[in-house]
Design a protein around this nucleic acid. Structure first.
Length: 420
RNA sequence: GUGGAAUUGGUGAAGUGGUUAACACGCCGGAUUGUGGCUCCGGUAUGCAAGAGUUCGAUCCUCUUAUUCCACCCCA
């Protein structure tokens, strides 16, 4: 038997219902905030991710799906959404627009990781990228948008953990100070952190093992190294978030893994689901240097991404999931071939008028059809029989009240629609 | 990439080195002469992840592989 590749999933049944529900909430909210949909390729030239995500991140060091096509081009399945969108922004010269570009996406990403609950090799993220504005109002908008979407999805106890890395000057100064501080304490750090110290020292701050140690707790904090402009900027972001009533907490250990971040960085968690790292439902930050890094002009960018599978896992634990059941408006039942012909046309008429309608396709007896109608939670049953059909009538049964009426076959569509 | 635990039908699962692999749900059929959802009766894995080995004999022991899950790493 051929099975699905490791780390993939078949999204079907209730989970699929949840997925479409999430997608609807996302696209509705995005539209209200005036974000436009962007769809970039699932694969890009490999170099794009090496230059954007950064070589210090495991995502590029060992987690990408790389391949060569028949033209010997080196390609990579996208491990995240930002790089492709920034590439598109530059390639299509969207920076020429006088307006802020606000994009959202909702699509599949690929990372070669060891799978676990809420972590797949093929997974889905939705997120936004806002390009061309450095106004703190955008930082606040992006964060609150993410917050509001998750809230709309009935996820409770949301909290945004936020921090600022500052501009390039601040960031470099801080990094230097941190290394200088940590270097003498090297022996007190876990082996992983000793490695991080060389590659990406900021990541020592959110280490699970060392994070609790005094060495790390007393380490210099990014916000103390912000220059005046960066500090003022960060305070503005917080002020706007207060105004938007977003529950946030400044957390100096939020540093994010991807190289391209500067200024505002944040992640969002559900405090009632803090069992583990999966409780990080989404994260993001500003990446003002990235556009230039990818051969674009000096510009500005910020975005967030949310893991859909993780959201699905949380949604499964709340009542919403149990109440998710298929429901149709109408089930048309028949037995004889003559009745079947009527069933066919009646079903089509209803469907073309927007009524969700089903009929038997298994040659089931009437009893079996009743059972199927119940499985589908059909609101109405149309039960055909030859005698009534000869008089131009059909039996319509309200499946809630069990009341049955004979309706003129030509008025059936109006009758059903009128009662829905 | 490292360490650990699992894998029995459509589903949840019990179980044993030796005739027919419990039980429950679901599904199918019948009682109900074409109007169900209750009840009762019957049918539902020549099969216990795959392959190899040990054995007179393995679903149960051993090994390999695959997948899933947990912790780490990383990240959403």
């Amino acid at each position: 038997m051929i099975t699905k590749p490791k780390g993939t999933m078949d999204l079907v049944g209730k989970d699929a219902l949840l997925y479409t529900y999430i997608s609807h909430v996302v696209s509705n909210m995005m539209t209200s905030y005036n974000y436009e949909l962007i769809r970039t390729p699932l694969f890009e030239n490999s170099e794009l991710f090496h230059r954007s995500v950064g070589k210090s991140s495991d995502i590029v060091r060992k987690e990408t799906y790389d391949f060569q096509d028949k033209g010997e081009r080196n390609l990579t399945l996208r491990p995240e959404g930002t790089a492709g969108i920034v590439r598109s922004f530059i390639e299509n010269k969207m920076y020429a627009s006088p307006d802020t570009k606000k994009f959202y996406y909702n699509g599949t990403m690929y990372r070669y990781e060891r799978p676990q609950t809420g972590r797949m090799r093929e997974f889905t993220q939705f997120g936004v990228e806002v390009l061309g504005s450095n106004d703190p109002i955008i930082d606040a908008e992006v964060i609150s948008l993410q917050y509001r979407i998750l809230e709309e999805l009935h996820i409770s106890d949301l909290q945004v953990n936020i921090n600022s890395l500052g501009d390039e000057e601040s960031r470099l100064k801080y990094r230097e100070a941190l290394v200088k501080y940590l270097e003498p304490h090297k022996d007190e750090l876990c082996p992983d952190c000793q490695e991080r110290l060389k590659i990406n020292p900021l990541r020592c701050l959110d280490c699970k093992i060392d994070g609790e140690k005094d060495v790390i707790k007393k380490a210099p904090k990014t916000i103390d190294y912000l220059n005046e402009d960066s500090k003022k900027r960060f305070n503005k972001v917080l002020e706007y978030l207060d105004l938007l009533e977003v529950d946030y907490e400044v957390n100096p250990s939020i540093v994010r893994g991807l190289d391209y971040y500067d200024h505002t960085v944040f992640e969002i968690v559900s405090l009632s689901n803090v069992s583990n790292e999966h409780s990080v439902l989404g994260a993001g930050g500003r990446y003002n240097k990235l556009i230039k890094e990818l051969d674009g002009p000096d510009s500005y960018g910020i975005g967030f991404a949310c893991g859909v599978e993780r959201i699905i896992e949380i949604l499964k634990t709340i009542d919403l999931y149990n109440n998710l059941e298929p429901q149709i408006d109408c089930f048309v039942m028949y037995v004889s071939e003559e009745e079947k012909l009527h069933a066919l046309t009646i079903t089509q008429n209803l469907r073309l008028n927007g009524v969700i309608c089903e009929t038997d396709s298994q040659n089931k007896g009437l009893k079996g059809q009743f059972k199927e109608a119940d499985r589908l939670n059909s609101k109405y049953l149309i039960i055909l029989n030859n005698e009534d059909l000869k008089k131009g009538l059909v039996n319509v049964k309200d499946n809630a009240t069990k009341e049955e009426e004979k309706i003129d076959i030509d008025e059936i569509v109006e009758y059903i629609i009128g009662n829905l």
